[in-house]
């Protein structure tokens, strides 16, 4: 989980932003192969299946949309109070009044999971935004700057990469104290170097591409090249990176919860719920199952969507 964000999702498509830099170097000059090629070497184009491949992406988008709505208007789906206790009705299995069961204090797990979408997605989005924001600055400096700046920034990225991500997060959390803000900053910082390396590679790739070269030959200014070519090209990569990173950020927060550094109780954040339920995993399965389901559902949907964007990105460039 968590630390996997070091380097964003490795290679979904040949020139996708998530491909490791090495791979991109190797491929930058190669023609983009048709998508439909089978690894066995046979070559059967089936353009019409494109619509079928879109279905998972549509479902993923729908799930994320529902989650975002739940995050903004949780009462639409769960009108109850996520903090309301009923000590006498603790540890009720799913069914009847409590579709996901109740926790030890008799709080309705369904309500808590739905209301947990807000903080979970907010931390996930915040952390991803912070991580990608920092990474973009580093990546642009390294990718566009003079040699010495690239060298310096690349070293910095390397240092951050070598620093175990969870250690970084752990230190940030211990310094800032537990809470949503600390968790956001911790995860954002820990994931930034992975993104930075990818963005640097992408920027260099675009900067060295034929059409940028052509623009340069035509005498276009730096600003033009930056705004018309580099930024749009990178932005598309960023969009897919961000979607992919969202899921990972949520999983990271879980790891922090496990170490006792997540959001403060009684907030219904998914990672905290999952960790709370873990000690009852053998006795009261629903306490981990439902929060876990939502985490996996979100992360997988984000992955599917992110890969979809990466694909579009590839065909657009």
């Amino acid at each position: 989980m968590s630390e996997n964000t070091r380097q964003e999702r490795p290679g979904s498509e040949p020139t996708s932003p998530s491909t490791p830099p090495h791979a991109q170097h190797a491929r930058a000059s190669q023609p983009v192969p048709p998508r439909t090629a089978s690894p066995w070497g046979s070559h059967t184009p089936h353009r019409f299946t494109l619509r079928a491949r879109d279905i998972p992406r549509l479902i993923a988008a729908l799930i994320l949309l529902l989650l975002v709505i739940a995050a903004i208007f949780p009462a639409l789906f769960a009108p109850g109070d996520p903090l309301a206790i009923d000590p006498a009705a603790g540890f009720q299995p799913p069914g009847g009044a409590h579709p996901f069961g109740t926790d030890g204090s008799g709080r309705d797990l369904y309500t808590r999971v739905i209301h947990g979408a807000g903080p979970s997605l907010l931390i996930g989005l915040g952390a991803t935004a912070l991580g990608i924001g920092l990474a973009t600055i580093l990546g642009l400096l390294a990718g566009l700057g003079p040699r010495w700046l690239d060298f310096g920034t690349s070293r910095l990225i390397e240092v951050l990469l070598a620093f175990p991500g969870l250690v970084l997060a752990l230190l940030v959390m211990v310094i800032s104290g537990p809470g949503a803000l600390g968790a956001t900053v911790a995860v954002g910082l820990a994931t930034a170097p992975g993104y930075a390396r990818i963005i640097r590679g992408r920027v260099r790739e675009i900067a060295g591409s034929g059409y940028v070269e052509a623009a340069r030959v035509q005498g276009r200014g730096r600003v033009h090249i930056l705004t018309r070519h580099i930024f749009p090209g990178t932005a598309r990569s960023l969009a897919s990176l961000a979607t992919l990173g969202l899921g990972q950020a949520i999983v990271w927060v879980c790891a922090l919860s496990f170490l006792g550094l997540g959001v403060a109780p009684p907030a219904a954040e998914w990672g905290a719920l999952l960790n709370e339920g873990r000690q009852f995993i053998a006795t009261f399965w629903w306490l981990t199952f439902f929060p876990g389901l939502f985490i996996v559902l979100t992360a997988v949907s984000a992955t599917v969507l992110g890969r979809g964007l990466a694909r579009t990105d590839r065909s657009a460039s």
Binding site: S2, P10, G11, A23, L161, L166, V167, L259
Partner: peptide, 30 residues
């Protein structure tokens, strides 16, 4: 498959092993 495809494809994944190792150190905490 054995002589070309796999060999070609394994490269990037192996290149990523350094990163994977770093991630394992973090995972080891848990």
């Amino acid at each position: 498959f054995a002589r070309h495809t796999l060999r070609h494809a394994a490269g990037p994944a192996i290149g990523l092993t350094g990163w994977a190792f770093g991630s394992l150190m973090s995972g080891a905490v848990v």
